[in-house]
């Protein structure tokens, strides 16, 4: 449960940032698409932190 939330939260943030940048630069939807894998990796990073018990960084 906790781990799923970590994953989804990173994805949401990444997509929101991509969407915002798209609006800013009128590049819709490319930056948002670009941010999806980045968000996935960040989600994995969160998972690693959460399961490792440490926040490391």
């Amino acid at each position: 449960m906790r781990l799923g939330v970590e994953m989804v939260a990173a994805m949401v943030i990444a997509v929101v940032i991509g969407w915002g940048l798209d609006k800013l630069f009128h590049t819709s939807p490319w930056l948002m698409i670009l941010m999806v894998p980045v968000g996935m990796v960040a989600g994995l990073r969160n998972l690693l932190r959460a399961s490792g018990g440490k926040t490391g960084g």
Binding site: V5, E6, V8, A9, A10, V12, I13, A14, I17, M35, V38, G39, V41, A42, G43, R45, N46, R49, G57
Partner: peptide, 12 residues
Amino acid sequence: IEIISYLSRPVS
């Protein structure tokens, strides 16, 4: 990635 990971904290 680090920044997104950091920003996702309040969401999670």
